[in-house]
Computed example of a mutant assay.
Amino acid sequence: MNYENIYIEEENNIATITINRPKKLNALNKRTISELHTAFKELDEDDEIQVIIITGSGEKAFVAGADISEFADFSVKEGRKLAAEGQEILFDFVENLSTPVIAAVNGFALGGGLELAMSSHFRIASDNAKMGLPEVSLGVIPGYGGTQRLPQLVGKGRAMEIIMTAGMITADQALQYGLVNHVVSQEELLPLSLKIASRISNNSPVAIKYAIKAVNAGFKYDVNGYATEIDAFGTCFGTNDFKEGTSAFLEKRKADFPGS
């Protein structure tokens, strides 16, 4: 597919998706959301790709929110449809992707940008990053999962404060709150993301897929996370990756996982 608002680079089984709307601070519009869905789907189906990194172009912003001009005149029905479709095709889709997704947050991650970062499996931030959910300052609330994922990551009280003040927190605060895993300089952001992605890619992609599923299950009100873990654990025993991993361990050699 020919992309207008994103570009993809692939190297050593790692794909990096860069949102490329620098004049709009990489804001998410309908086309960008659609392109991201297609990119994530195609990369997830590519057996060669074992980790995906998502970032924004330039030094100012990861994603500075949604493109407000697209929905400023929406009705109640249209607003509900916007949130429902966005969650389905991008934010929930990314969270439940079988391939690990790392958000490399450079600069502003606001509104839909922070929601995209929170949908990723974990986050690394540059030291100039600033994060927030400013939607209430526009008379609306976060609609792409922000009211649900932020409390899961930082706790209810901190999430309430961040959402209700519509303010921004720094990268260091985000690290303290557990919203991001690491904070580094902008120059170190992608190298560290690639280094961690490389470590992930050494492990069984099948086991990682089931680990993602089991961890996510623990945050769903209608799913028994422990039961999901038990089932996934047992399923792993029937995979070629399990056979290779245990054989390699017993033979004192590095595993070469087939990914099946």
Rank of each mutant, 00 (worst) to 15 (best):
F62E: 00
F91Q: 00
K60F: 11
I196L: 02
T147N: 04
V136C: 13
F74M: 03
K77Q: 01
T235I: 14
G259K: 01
R123A: 11
S247W: 09
P134W: 03
I89S: 06
F237W: 15
N13I: 06
A117K: 00
F108E: 09
G65V: 08
I17P: 00
S137V: 11
N2G: 10
Y144R: 02
H121V: 02
Y7V: 01
S204F: 04
E9P: 01
G157M: 07
G178M: 13
V63A: 06
H182S: 12
A211S: 09
G259C: 08
K130C: 03
E4F: 08
R123C: 05
I33Y: 02
L25K: 01
A27Y: 05
E115F: 02
E85R: 04
V180H: 05
F249K: 14
V63G: 00
L116P: 00
K130G: 04
V223H: 11
V180N: 10
L82R: 02
I163E: 02
T16G: 03
L82D: 02
S201G: 13
S34M: 15
N106M: 12
G167R: 09
R199D: 15
G107K: 03
D241M: 05
K24M: 10
N240R: 12
A211Y: 08
R158Q: 13
A83R: 01
M168Y: 04
I169H: 06
A125L: 04
I163C: 05
R31I: 06
K81A: 07
G58P: 04
I141A: 09
N13V: 14
N20A: 05
P22G: 11
V184W: 04
P258S: 11
P142G: 06
K220D: 09
G238N: 10
T38V: 09
A103Y: 01
S137L: 15
L153M: 13
L36M: 13
A255H: 03
T170R: 07
R21E: 10
A211E: 10
N203I: 12
I54H: 06
E45G: 02
S69M: 11
R199N: 15
L110C: 10
G167I: 07
F62I: 07
R21Y: 12
V136E: 15
S75C: 08
K156Y: 11
I14R: 00
N203Y: 09
